[in-house]
Design a protein around this nucleic acid. Structure first.
Lengths: 229, 229
DNA sequence: AAGTGGTCTAGACCACATT
DNA sequence: ATGTGGTCTAGACCACTTT
């Protein structure tokens, strides 16, 4: 049977485990290893590239391939649309707009997303529910210069998260996870005690070089985010 | 110039953006697209596989390739060794053991990691510092059946996290992020007010089918975890 | 049965980093 | 200058799914 890149990966991992190639050590070159394994160079290449992607190996031209000193599998999880998140858990999703305003961008916002002070932004506060239970409180700012259509949308029935996805299919972004003591107003909406610990995600999104939106998401008490690694 | 898989990716993303291929729609087959783009099938294949990995496309044999309904870039970040985390931030790392005990596995632990009630486990509590400041409180359980060498190691100078990495180079695992109100003892070590919101990670690790360790990590107040997406 | 993606091969040339 | 990885090509066969 022919050698698959999966077989190659498995064998490389074995050799790291049994200390044939200790942490930090150098591996033979692609070409040599391909010969040894009896596969094409492309197959060996794919296996090794995969392992770089998995956080196990490091490669540099000329310098060669080595086992990372601290192999770290990369955590991977997708931040889905809230609706999907709730529905995948088997619950009924519902949404409710709290507040919608257009106003000039405050200066603190301009430090976070690339836009000029005073330019019009849409500010939205809303709630997401899982069945009857509060699921997430969302506080979002949308750059009207980049997404002018948001000016004409009322967000009464559809959340900004879902709506934006239609307008701007995908984007680059940054996620920041943290914990925060529930402020009074958010606590009320999430039906949580004031000052209880809430899991929070800040999400900044841009398209090319333009900032699209900045959102602070506060999850209901005891929410957990799980990730295979 | 020859067409690179990067060029192909970029063009595919463009066509999704400008609605040539709306969310949920089907793309032409690899072979047809390769012809249109003037590249080899392998190049088109790599581009499309990459986009699957990026969370933009879905592929199924015979059924073909389609744009995902909710494209989600996968968040990726590596959970590093605490020492590296601190040192990369330019601070001096230090470690301090709080408590080290060997005891029979309590039943709640056996529900989380695969081991039998009463089998010996090592329980460690320790602190990680960034300069003078508390950085992380760690509460860890190690399966002595899988890592018997832990029995003979005192963990006075080296944290279990770093030590385990040497013993068990890499592992599969699960991460759970959450927020918690600081209990009294942990608050004391982290120099945070009791009940202040702490960012917490639970980490479960296994090797093949054997559970290696379960750790609860509590970060200092206002700690943030950042991730490109 | 047929269409689509999944993968392997053998060869080639290029790009980069070190010497 | 040289060695190593990065990538493209053209062709082949396989594997899965749907018809």
């Amino acid at each position: 049977m022919r050698i698959s890149y999966r077989d190659v990966k498995a064998e490389i991992l074995n050799r790291i485990r049994n200390n044939t190639w200790p942490l930090g050590s150098n591996l033979p070159s692609e070409i040599d290893l391909a010969k040894e394994f009896g596969c094409a160079r492309a197959t060996m290449n794919r296996a090794m590239r995969d392992l770089v992607d998995d956080g196990i190996l490091e490669r540099k031209r000329k310098a060669g391939t080595k086992v990372k000193q601290s192999p770290t599998r990369r955590a991977q999880f997708s931040i889905a649309v809230v609706r999907d998140e709730v529905e995948q858990a088997g619950a009924k999703y519902s949404y409710s707009l709290i507040e919608r305003n257009v106003l000039p961008a405050p200066s603190w916002l301009c430090e976070r997303i690339k836009m000029k002070i005073g330019e019009p932004v849409l500010h939205i506060k809303c709630m997401h529910y899982s069945g009857k239970h509060p699921y997430q409180y969302e506080d979002r700012w949308v750059n009207l210069d980049v997404v002018p259509a948001a000016n004409d949308f009322d967000f009464e029935d559809i959340g900004p998260n879902e709506w934006l996805l239609q307008q701007v299919p995908f984007t680059d972004g940054e996620l920041v996870f943290s914990a925060i003591n529930a402020p009074e107003d958010i606590a009320r909406f999430l039906k949580a005690p004031v000052d209880s610990a809430l899991f929070s995600i800040e999400r900044t999104t841009w398209l090319e070089d333009k900032s699209v939106t900045y959102a602070q998401l506060y999850f209901a008490r005891d929410h957990k985010l799980t990730s295979r690694i």
